[in-house]
Design a protein around this nucleic acid. Structure first.
Length: 408
DNA sequence: AATGAAAACAACCGCTTTTTG
DNA sequence: TCAAAAAGCGGTTGTTTTCAT
């Protein structure tokens, strides 16, 4: 059937926006809301296509976005979430208050990607580039398994997120039916502003449903709280313990999975078959993660990031890790250039081996229930620990996402 | 001071997904 | 139910700025 172009391109201006154009667009939206983007340019007296106006508004003119340099914390967040989510910029953006996906994407492409590359880390896989050189069996195998694990978990989280979102939507519509109103916290920046401004035409329009990544977080949080394992142990029903820990506003939702047989991973870590129960490598973060983010009222700058000791255990491994040392940027900040800080901070974050900190050493190798002990288990390779540290830090990040962020 | 290269940023393009009538 | 419109999203390109020579 084909689709009509978003606008007829004849006579429409392209390229950078002028202050005058910005002013026109701002003034029009402030007064009328954007309504239909297609119709907006004519009404606002702009020689632009509606899509261009929408992008300009979404990425630059909206009052609720922050411009300017990314903080170290933001950079860390981006890197960690990119490791988890890949190039899903909009999902990443929901974790960074007031930042747009476009800005994050650009920042990644122009700064962070290069920086990681420079550090010898593949920005796509977030693994050291010399993987290939990790010749021998165990390490390569471990790397492969971790990669599988990450991919599998990512896919699983997506599926989870969908289900949780659907569940919440149902829950929300039910609430609406019974007259309950506005239990939603603000959604993502974009949808928030859009929903507000859309009110011009449809003042009664309900706020948009929470973004999927919110659900992803919920799942992670639930998972992180141990609820995942606990609830899934018996029946395969997965109870999302959202809100159970008291740090989330949304109601508890319970879902059931028909697929009680998750995709079989190419063995769990270490490649051992681990009884019947662990066709998939469950990872449990045994709840001592005390990481917290403190956000100052009125400004969305992370003021601190407590160190934490997190026990990381999978069905096969258990580690106790301290994130201490990772967040020393406040000190570093005073003594080094931004890039130096980042180099240091990220290097510590991503590559720091446990050898520097006794508490980082794998607790008894953690492999208490690992009968394998084979490749890579005798001594955790640095790579292995690095990976766990890395992924743990990602989940710590997710776990510590403020419940009142726009994400929620 | 001039110039070319690299970096950074802003915007566009085109595809996909969601919404609406 | 279906088609069109709108919005979302990620990749890419074009322009501007900065830096090195």
């Amino acid at each position: 059937m084909g689709r009509s172009p978003c606008c007829d391109k004849v006579g429409l201006k392209k390229g950078p926006w002028t202050p005058e154009e910005d002013q026109k667009l701002l003034a029009y939206i402030e007064e009328h809301g954007h309504g239909s983007w297609r119709a907006l340019p004519a009404k606002a007296g702009l020689q632009r296509c509606g899509k261009s106006c929408r992008l300009r508004w979404t990425n630059y003119l909206r009052p609720d976005i922050k411009r300017g340099k990314f903080s170290l914390q933001e950079e860390q967040t981006i890197i960690q979430l990119h490791a988890l989510l890949g190039n899903r910029w909009s999902a990443i953006a929901t974790h960074l208050p007031k930042r747009t996906d476009n800005e994050i994407k650009n920042y990644w492409n122009t700064h962070l990607k290069k920086r990681l590359t420079k550090m010898g880390i593949d920005p796509v896989t977030h693994k050291p580039k010399n993987d290939a050189l990790l010749s021998s069996d165990g390490q390569t195998k471990t790397a492969a398994n971790l990669s599988h694990m990450a991919q599998w978990e990512s896919a699983r989280l997506e599926a989870e997120a969908r289900l949780v979102r659907e569940s919440k939507l149902r829950s929300h519509s039910l609430q609406q039916q019974i007259g309950s109103s506005s239990t939603f916290a603000s959604s993502s920046c974009a949808s928030t502003s859009a929903s507000v401004l859309n009110n011009n035409n449809k003042p009664e329009a309900p706020p948009p449903p929470p973004p999927p990544s919110r659900s992803s977080l919920d799942v992670l949080k639930a998972w992180n709280n141990g609820g995942w394992l606990k609830s899934s142990e018996g029946s395969g029903a997965i109870a999302s313990t959202v809100g159970a820990s008291g740090d989330l506003e949304s109601p508890t939702s319970t879902l059931s999975f028909s697929e009680n047989a998750p995709p079989i991973m190419n063995n769990a870590i270490g490649g051992e078959s681990n009884n019947n129960e662990n066709a998939m490598p469950m990872i449990e973060f045994v709840g001592s993660s005390t990481t917290s983010l403190v956000k100052e009222e009125g400004e969305h700058e992370w003021k601190g990031y407590d160190s934490s000791i997190t026990t990381f255990s999978s069905g096969l491994h258990e580690f106790t890790m301290s994130m201490e040392g990772t967040w020393e940027h406040e000190t570093l900040r005073t003594n080094a250039s931004h890039d130096d800080i980042v180099e240091e901070g990220f290097t510590n974050l991503l590559l720091k081996t446990n050898s520097e900190d006794p508490s980082l050493s794998s607790e008894g190798g953690g492999e208490s229930n690992n009968g394998d002990g084979g490749s890579g288990s005798g001594s955790h390779s640095d790579f292995y620990e690095d990976n766990n540290n890395y992924w743990n830090s990602i989940l710590n990040l997710v776990n510590s996402s403020p419940s009142h962020s726009p994400m929620f």
